[in-house]
């Protein structure tokens, strides 16, 4: 019910956004405000969450920080707005925020219907199913009649619908709005199946399950979950800034530039790509309307994609996710930046 309401409101705001007055460019607004305003989820550790001191951490948070470093040369000039699945895109449409980096899956409907644009994903995921081992289920086809915990308005909800159609099985939906409540419900036995991104599933299993060995993640991966920053469609310059900030993170890792060695690299690298990346030759800052040292600032203050990944979700974090498809293309992953 609340979901329909939210959908209606999103549609209404989309309409209003289309009819609304075309304001100043986003870059000007951001500069006038003195901060990049960023919608994040706020309840997804590893992506965006506050620690015990109220400070923000996560891949999404670092993407916003990188953006602030690119625009202001100062990664701390960023303001976070905690949003949920119903408000994260509305806040962007209404101009409340400049960019949304809130685990939003890039879908055709979201990209084409809402007046929004998705830039290159910063995290690739897919949906998986987790069941108690005791159920003895080996694949999704055997789940006929099982109950499934899903979040309203999420990609998981659609995946469940697809699975039912694809395998001709019937699942019972238990709709719960909060991931924490879903975990409680699933591990408390209220539903047989948990659907979530595989990254979410493995971290849930590691952190929440009473005994992680009692649960299996089925081998099938459903759907694709490319998640990355979202911007409004009406400002190509701002879109380019966000896009190339993300590519800078990617390229820095590929070229072996880290926050630690960036100064040496800038001083004496002979590599043409590195020289262009760090603005020794041409940084592309002019075309974007940014300072020539913008990419240097991003890498110096935030790090490269590998550093961001490792400290937030990878080996240096409690989540301990593998790089998997989020490795550089040179290592068989999907992280790929166009040539500079």
């Amino acid at each position: 019910m609340r979901n329909y309401l939210a959908t209606g409101l999103v549609a209404l705001s989309a309409l209003a956004a289309v009819c609304g007055p075309a304001g100043a460019s986003t870059l000007d607004t951001v500069k006038k405000n003195g901060v990049v305003t960023c919608a994040v989820n706020g309840s997804r550790p590893g992506f965006s969450a506050v620690d015990s001191k109220g400070e923000w951490h996560g891949i999404d948070v670092d993407t916003c920080r990188a953006l602030a470093a690119a625009v202001f040369g100062d990664a701390s000039k960023v303001k976070f707005l905690k949003t949920n699945n119903q408000t994260r895109l509305t806040a962007l449409q209404t101009g409340e925020v400049d960019v949304t980096v809130a685990n939003t899956t890039w879908t055709r409907a979201r990209d084409t219907d809402l007046g929004l644009d998705f830039v290159s994903p910063t995290f690739y995921d897919g949906q998986g199913l987790m069941v108690p081992k005791a159920l003895g289920v080996k694949n999704a086809q055997e789940l006929d009649g099982a109950s499934v915990c899903v979040r309203p308005g999420s990609t998981s909800e659609r995946v469940v619908a697809d699975i039912q159609k694809k395998f001709g099985i019937k699942l019972k939906l238990v709709v719960i709005d909060d991931q924490k409540e879903i975990n409680t419900a699933f591990f408390g036995g209220r539903c047989d199946v948990a659907v979530q991104s595989t990254s979410g599933l493995s971290s849930t299993r590691a952190a929440v399950a009473p005994n992680p060995d009692d649960y299996v993640i089925l081998p099938q991966i459903f759907g694709k979950d490319p998640m990355g920053p979202v911007v409004r469609q009406d400002d190509p310059q701002w879109r380019d800034i966000v896009q190339w900030t993300v590519f800078t993170l990617f390229q820095a890792e590929e070229s072996g530039v880290t926050s630690k060695n960036v100064d040496e690299m800038k001083a004496d690298s002979k590599d043409a790509t590195v020289r262009r990346l760090l603005g020794v030759d041409d940084s592309g800052g002019k075309g974007l309307g940014l300072d020539p040292a913008w990419a240097y600032n991003v890498i110096k203050q935030v790090g490269n994609y590998g550093e961001v990944f490792d400290r937030n979700v990878g080996k240096d974090s409690p989540l301990k996710l593998e790089r998997g498809i989020n490795a550089q293309y040179t290592d068989g992953g999907l992280i790929y930046a166009p040539p500079l």
Binding site: V50, N84, Q179, K180, A207
Partner: peptide
């Protein structure tokens, strides 16, 4: 007020308890 993206007491608690190291103690 958590719908505005502000951390009220309950919203802050919810967010704080997502921390993977403390998530069991909701």
């Amino acid at each position: 007020f958590s719908i505005l993206g502000l951390f009220d007491v309950l919203g802050a608690t919810k967010a704080a308890l997502q921390d993977p190291q403390w998530v069991r103690y909701g």
